[in-house]
């Protein structure tokens, strides 16, 4: 039962793009590692340009620090929405619409979100 629940929630994370085989074996640590690389990549997330984040030097201070994310964004889908298109919460936001404008692929967003929620 535990396992089934886990498989289902992971499935929700990765969406239909991932092959079902990958789901059961998906290693969360690996996903977080890849998500982190996406977050820090200058041409991908580059979140540190605006947000203080654990493990990043000289962060910008345009957005709020990304800390205690699980407490503030318990709902992974909401967090994904915020990153995919922050205009949902603030139509005039300066934060780039990473999903809607194709800055990140769906698969990249999936990994990034897991990493961000782990902060």
């Amino acid at each position: 039962m535990q396992n089934l629940y886990r498989a289902l929630s992971v499935a929700a994370l990765f969406g239909a793009l991932m092959a079902p085989m990958g789901l059961a074996t998906a290693d969360e640590a690996q996903v977080i590692k890849e998500g982190k690389a996406i977050a820090f990549n200058k041409t991908k997330g580059n979140c540190i340009a605006c947000h203080m984040m654990d493990g990043g030097d000289m962060p910008g201070n345009i957005g709020p620090p990304l800390i205690a994310m699980k407490a503030r964004f318990p709902d992974l889908a909401k967090l994904r929405e915020q990153i995919s298109d922050a205009r949902g919460m603030n139509p005039n936001t300066i934060m780039p619409p990473f999903g809607t404008h194709g800055i990140l692929t769906e698969a990249e967003l999936d990994k990034l979100v897991v990493y961000i929620q782990s902060l």
Binding site: A49, G60, N61
Partner: peptide
């Protein structure tokens, strides 16, 4: 205006 009005004085990375 985002960078040079509303967030002027703030930092993008170290700038």
């Amino acid at each position: 205006a985002d960078c040079h009005v509303y967030y002027s004085g703030r930092r993008v990375r170290s700038e």
